[in-house]
Amino acid sequence: MKTRIKEFRAKYNLTQEDLAKKVGVRRETIVFLEQGKYNPSLQLAFSISKVLKVSVEELFVLK
């Protein structure tokens, strides 16, 4: 799965650590998400989209 987390994170000047703290996961999880190596649960996907103020469809793109 392709994600645009990095792009939206940069928009709000958030580091990976900041985003990880806001959604309650480890920093590695954000790293793997950005690399498209991990598919998040629906709960995590919605939490990230809420923090980054975008819809889930905009954030995650099925390859």
Partner: peptide, 14 residues
Amino acid sequence: KEVKKGFSIHDERS
């Protein structure tokens, strides 16, 4: 180090 920074030792990926 991670725990000291306030991160959890477990999350959904781990």
